[in-house]
Write a protein that binds this DNA or RNA. Structure first.
Lengths: 204, 204
DNA sequence: TATGTCAATGACACTATGTCATTAAAAACT
DNA sequence: AGTTTTTAATGACATAGTGTCATTGACATA
């Protein structure tokens, strides 16, 4: 049986992946080198190239699981029958989104760094982005159909506005840029999204 | 007089800067090399290093003027005395912001690419970001004082939400990602920011 | 025991960066 | 005018990383 052979190969690959993870966490994506990964995995220089095309390839593999989780959050159903229910559902989705990012903070930090460096990684994130935007667009159409939301707003543009603000706060949290309470951010964003900043007098 | 000497040096530096610009536009920031810049400028390999520390340094210099323009837009005064005036001022600032980015589209594209690659360039952009956020925060405090805006919203969080959505649309435009009309984006964002997506019933 | 397979390897070719001693031409000095 | 000083410009060199591929050797199979 060649089962042992394949088992061995799998183990080497895992050893490399684990080493890559460590090297990325230690030095960041940019400074990490294939040399360092091979060194930490105690494999020869050529070995990394047997299993991975390049540095990006390591990260893409390391991100798979997290990507899947984001995808699941994008797919959370949205069928509110009232404003307050809508508010709860929206706040809940934001909470899931930000919590996931915080939970996977380390790898998200690396991911963010890599988005700017690797076109491959960037397109992976763009994919997640699109899933959220499409899903939010549908939610808005739903809210408009049931007269919960203003009809005059373009769902796609509105969805993008909303997602972008979420995304940027998410990166803020990942990078520890501000020290606001997450709950406060969630409530503020949701409230702004639903009611706006200005006191309503009449609509045009 | 050493004026000729300095004149000569200045010319060489300008020649290099111009060459860098061309190389960046042609190959993008990441793929561009110092070699290519020297080649295009018809200077020896060491010459680039006389005037610039590294590749980043070229871009930072090329961005100075654009940074200044962003700074000016961040500083646009905001003293509305009514909701509709606020709307106009806000829409105008957005329009200036997006128009500037479009006008400097080529260099903004390079800049965006470099933000992900160079810590130096990233901190430059973070600086612009902070200027906008601080300025918007003040605007919100002003609107709240004059009872135009809801008191319960945290100005800093709200300012960040608003700026982030602007920033992301700006990058969309720079990267030609969507084909919406700019006017439509401006109107939608401003409207969303001021009135929210949901039809107001009562506020809590 | 012999043979084929394939995981693993490291030398090699290539490309890029950044440094520095050297060059040569202009500026300053006598 | 001749000598010295300054300095802009240079390219060889040291260093470091990437990716390839012919080779190796241990294991599986006949």
């Amino acid at each position: 049986m060649s089962n042992n052979r394949k088992q061995q190969a799998m183990e080497t690959k895992q050893k490399l992946l684990y080493a890559a993870r460590e090297v990325f966490f230690e030095h960041g994506f940019k400074k990490a080198t294939i040399r360092q990964i091979n060194q930490k995995a105690e494999t020869g220089h050529g070995t990394a190239y047997v299993y991975f095309k390049n540095k990006e390839d390591f990260l893409v593999e390391l991100m798979l699981e997290t990507m899947e989780s984001f995808h699941n959050i994008a797919a959370i159903p949205f069928r509110p029958s009232s404003q307050s229910e809508a508010h709860k559902l929206i706040a809940h989705q934001v909470e899931q989104f930000l919590s996931l990012a915080l939970e996977k903070k380390q790898i998200m930090k690396i991911f963010k760094e890599a988005i700017g460096i690797s076109a491959n990684v960037e397109s992976n994130w763009q994919h997640i982005r699109n899933q959220f935007i499409e899903s939010i667009t549908k939610d808005i159409v739903y809210a408009q159909r049931y007269a919960l939301a203003h009809q005059h707003l373009n769902p796609s543009i509105t969805a993008r506005s909303w997602f972008y603000m979420n995304e940027m706060f998410m990166w803020e949290l990942v990078e520890d840029q501000y020290t606001d309470d997450i709950e406060e951010i969630i409530e503020h964003m949701t409230s702004l999204y639903m009611n706006g900043l200005y006191i309503s007098t009449s609509h045009g």
